[in-house]
Design a protein around this nucleic acid. Structure first.
Length: 571
RNA sequence: CGGGACGUGGCUCAGCCUGGUAGAGCACAGCGUUCGGGACGCUGGGGUCGGAGGUUCAAAUCCUCUCGUCCCGACCA
């Protein structure tokens, strides 16, 4: 490919709209352009990278026995009403009407569509196991699109759905996908980690996320340094530590004047105690009414865990006025004693014998509060987020907290959708049975961004060989030197003939411009040919990730490049 | 949706406070000189200053409303 014949509009300056590294570099490298918030054009170079990811995904999905299909992006509301998600999914679901005023949505995911297809076409145990996948555009009207391709509203996703006759079959399929995903992300050259995850509103019982490790990641994960346990922070279970023996039961709660002292830190400093001696009372609004959550002062509430315990979808911290209505005191002085709300306590709180809490009275706290005697805990459970100080829930080892970008997520769905949409088959005995389902997603366009978050330096992108839009960048010094030009033209033709993806920078630009662009684009192998190198019958080769140049004789150049490429693609 | 910032040629920004001829650098076109890490000179094209109202003799600048974008929090591939 000739540079002058393609469209690679590189930018010297970063557009002001970009914050994340991958977003900046994708724009500067002329790979994407924004059309609207969270909606991007893919230019030729960006599309090439996207296609590379797609190809790897496709090859590994095919290899795992999955079958590719293509489902519509526009979906009628009826199926969503049947699954019950039309009302539940919320504003993220982009809804619209056709000319007949029929309701549709732009698919954010395809459980309904695929289940509908399968219930119509699959009727016998003989037709399973079955795993159908597609690579397609999704639309989710995200509250806040950000970081370019990392959280777009329109994005490319690979979604697969498996259908099995029983749970054992479903688990086998889950395992096949688990293995396929590991191969996919490894082939993409990504440094990633598999973590246990919350299954969220898609539902189901069990799930793993595949996280690309990057400091800019939006997700936090806890990883054990001793065993292979790793989990999303939302999910990681906290093991209850044996608490210190509290003060003896018996002393009655005692009010303490704490004028204008509200936060845990302020109260701890004022009363000369540690945050762990204090219990904070958080008032939340839920679908089923307000609740109070008790959490130790040095801990953070995990809203996912609370949602799962309560079985609610909405969980919002109550506003200032609402807190006053419910507790009779300003924010900062809420406490469980006398509170007429369901009280859910973190397990660490339930074990405390004498705690300091708000008094539900302005400027007062209570000490010697004893759960059971002074107030009733509706339910105690693990409601807080794990910290780096907690032990591994599996082996007791030390944990580290890492940041990651979620690029894949696999779920065991069980019978949720087959039940809602009546997807059944006849077993060997001629009895009607529900189909066991699983679903498996990969953020294809997000991988492009994640690879850049992980592979870049001050000069631009550093692509892994498997994702680079071109494997080789061929740079002639002085295109109007006929000897040089004849040489690069021949190399270009020969490399292309041998299946090497090569970009020949034929622009009449100074060498510095070409070097800068080549670095910016992240092309792995740079080959420079000029009068100086030709004097030695050689070309200069430099790897994008290395500062060293290597003179390679022209006669050895093509085998050398092919060897490098093969080595990096296949390890 | 709550909190913050910003909309001026394709890109980065100045001008706005204190109203009075729309600017710079980069990019683009032409010519010339250059040619191993984003060259230089000359010439040239391109902007209803996000949009709508208002105040004023006069608005990029002041006021009101709107639309859009980005950043921080609740969603997710």
């Amino acid at each position: 490919m000739l540079f002058s014949r393609t469209l690679i509009p590189t930018l010297k300056e970063t557009p002001s709209e970009a914050e994340a590294v991958s977003h900046k570099l994708l724009l500067r490298a002329g790979m994407i352009r924004k059309l609207a918030s969270g909606i991007y054009n893919y230019l030729p170079l960006g599309l090439k990278v996207l296609r590379k990811v797609e190809r790897i995904v496709r090859e590994e999905m095919d290899r795992s026995g999955a079958l590719e299909v293509l489902l519509p992006a526009v979906q009628p509301s009826e199926l969503w009403e049947e699954s019950g998600r039309w009302d539940v999914y919320g504003k993220e679901l982009l809804r619209f009407m056709d000319r007949h005023e029929r309701q549709y949505c732009f698919g954010p995911t395809h459980e309904e569509i695929i289940t509908d297809l399968v219930r119509k076409e699959v009727h016998s145990y003989r037709q399973m196991p079955l795993n159908l996948y597609q690579i397609q555009v999704k639309f989710r009207d995200e509250i806040r699109p950000r970081f370019g391709l990392i959280r777009g509203r329109e994005f490319i996703m690979k979604d697969a759905y498996s259908f099995d006759v029983d749970e054992a079959g479903a688990e086998a399929c889950y395992q096949r996908m688990y293995d396929a995903y590991n191969r996919i992300f490894a082939r993409c050259g990504l440094n990633f980690k598999v973590v246990e995850a919350d299954s969220g509103p898609i539902g189901g019982s069990f799930s793993h996320e595949f996280m690309v490790l990057a400091d800019t990641g939006e997700d936090l994960l806890a990883s054990c340094t001793a065993c292979d346990y790793a989990a999303n922070l939302e999910k990681a279970e906290v093991v209850l530590q044996a608490g210190k023996p509290g003060a003896a039961v018996g002393k009655a709660p005692e009010p303490l004047l704490t004028p204008n002292v509200r936060t845990v830190e302020e109260v701890a400093a004022f009363l000369k105690v540690t945050p762990a001696d204090i219990v904070k009372t958080l008032i939340y609004e839920t679908d089923t009414g307000p609740v109070a959550i008790l959490i130790r002062g040095d801990h953070e509430v995990n809203e996912i865990k609370v949602k799962n315990l309560l079985g609610v979808t909405d969980l919002i911290l109550a506003g200032l006025i609402r807190v006053q209505e419910l507790t009779g005191a300003e924010v900062g002085f809420a406490g469980p004693v006398g509170l007429k709300l369901p009280i859910y306590a973190d397990q660490a709180v339930a074990g405390l014998a004498a705690m300091i809490t708000g008094a539900n009275r302005d400027n007062y706290h209570l000490k010697n509060v004893h759960p059971g005697r002074d107030f009733k805990i509706t339910e105690a459970a693990d409601l807080r987020s794990i910290t780096a100080q907690d032990p591994c829930p599996r082996c007791g080892g030390a944990l580290t907290l890492l940041r990651g970008i979620e690029v894949g997520h696999i779920f065991k769905l069980g019978l949720k959708y087959s039940k809602a949409l009546r997807a059944t088959y006849l077993d060997q005995d001629g009895k009607e049975q529900l189909i066991y389902m699983g679903c498996y997603g990969i953020g294809v366009s997000r991988i492009v961004a994640a690879a850049i978050e992980q592979g870049h330096d001050d000069h631009g992108i550093v692509f892994p060989m498997a994702l680079a839009p071109f494997q080789v960048c061929l740079i002639p010094i002085a295109v109007n030197d006929p000897v040089v030009w004849e040489c690069v033209e021949r190399l270009h033709a020969e490399l292309e003939a041998q299946g090497v993806e090569v970009l020949l920078d034929d622009r009449d630009e100074r060498p510095g411009v070409k070097f800068k662009d080549c670095d910016l684009l992240g092309l792995p192998l740079r080959v420079v040919v000029g009068a100086k190198t030709l004097a030695q019958d050689a070309a200069e080769v430099r790897h994008r990730s290395s500062p060293n140049n290597l003179m390679v004789p022209l006669k050895d150049l093509i085998p050398y490049l092919k060897g490098q490429i093969a080595q990096e693609l296949h390890g």
